Simulated scan of single mutants.
Amino acid sequence: MKGVLAFVILLIGLSSCSDIYEQHEVEYLMQKGQHTSRKIGGLPGEKLGTLKSDMLAFTARFDETVRYDLGNKNQEDINKLMGFSDCNSLHHENSVRFGWRYSVEKDLVEIFSYAYTSGVVSYHHMGDVAIDETAYYQIQIVDDKFYLLLNGEIEQEVDRGANCDTGLYYKLYPYFGGDETAPHDISVYIKEILNQ
């Protein structure tokens, strides 16, 4: 009997250990009146992280809370999804990430590349995703370029800053704005994909 009980306990322990390595979708909430997001269920300050490879890959999904109509020119502002800083510098100097904004006309989320290179911002529309669609995002560093992929098909090339052969990369998380803060609570669900 003791042998059977020990075997059952071992099986339970092994099955719960596999959950440690499985990445789960995490909700990031941009609260009404705020720019920055917070990780739901996480500890304060827990979301700050560094990138330990030359690639960031994740899936993201916007639910129905993504719909907003600011009624002014700020509707065209690009919000930020996820990315990282570059060149051992602050993200307004050198960084790359995906941007997004809600299109009232199309009832879709428009996705952009969004980068700072030596303090100069650039962005390019890459495609659209439907509300509740889980899309795949990837940013790869290759020499003096970033390559951004949306759903493995749409690619955007972005120049890196000069003299960026080394760097500490800190991750950048969902952010609303632009000029305006979130008009209501907006959630985005992100699942980071770990490099093997």
Score class of each variant (00 low, 15 high):
F62P: 01
M30W: 06
K171D: 03
E157H: 06
M55H: 02
T59F: 04
H24K: 08
G152T: 00
L14P: 00
G119S: 06
G13L: 11
F176Y: 12
D179K: 01
T166A: 09
I40K: 12
Y169L: 03
Y116V: 10
P183D: 09
A115V: 14
S122Y: 14
S15V: 08
Y175V: 04
R61S: 07
F98G: 14
D19C: 06
R160S: 07
A135P: 01
Y114L: 09
R101F: 15
F146N: 13
D165R: 01
I9M: 00
S122K: 13
L148K: 13
Y136Q: 05
H184W: 05
V158F: 09
M30A: 07
K80M: 15
G33E: 06
E110Q: 15
E192Y: 12
Y175S: 03
V26M: 07
L10T: 05
Y189I: 02
E180K: 01
T117M: 11
L5F: 09
D165G: 09
A115C: 10
I190P: 00
I20E: 08
D19A: 04
I186G: 08
Y147T: 07
Y114S: 13
E192F: 09
I40F: 07
L70I: 08
K191D: 02
R67Q: 15
H125E: 13
E180V: 14
L14N: 08
D54Q: 01
L168Y: 05
Y173N: 09
S37K: 14
C87Y: 06
G161R: 02
G152A: 02
R97T: 03
C17Y: 11
Q23H: 08
E153N: 04
G99E: 10
A57T: 01
L90D: 03
D143C: 05
L150K: 09
T166P: 00
A130N: 11
F146S: 08
E93D: 04
M1K: 07
H125W: 15
Y116N: 12
F112G: 12
L70R: 04
I40V: 08
G127W: 15
K106W: 10
N94W: 10
P44F: 13
R160F: 12
Y169H: 13
I12A: 02
E76I: 12
V104N: 11
F62M: 13
V96F: 12
L29P: 00
L168F: 12
Y114V: 04
W100N: 12
R38D: 10
R38K: 11
L149S: 09
E153V: 00
L150W: 15
G161T: 04
V104W: 11
L48Y: 15
G41E: 05
G3P: 00
S113P: 01
G178D: 05
I131P: 02
I193V: 04
N79I: 08
I139W: 07
H35G: 03
D128F: 15
Y116L: 08
D143G: 01
V96K: 09
D19P: 00
L10C: 02
E25L: 01
L148G: 13
T36F: 15
M126V: 10
N74R: 11
M82Y: 14
D63S: 01
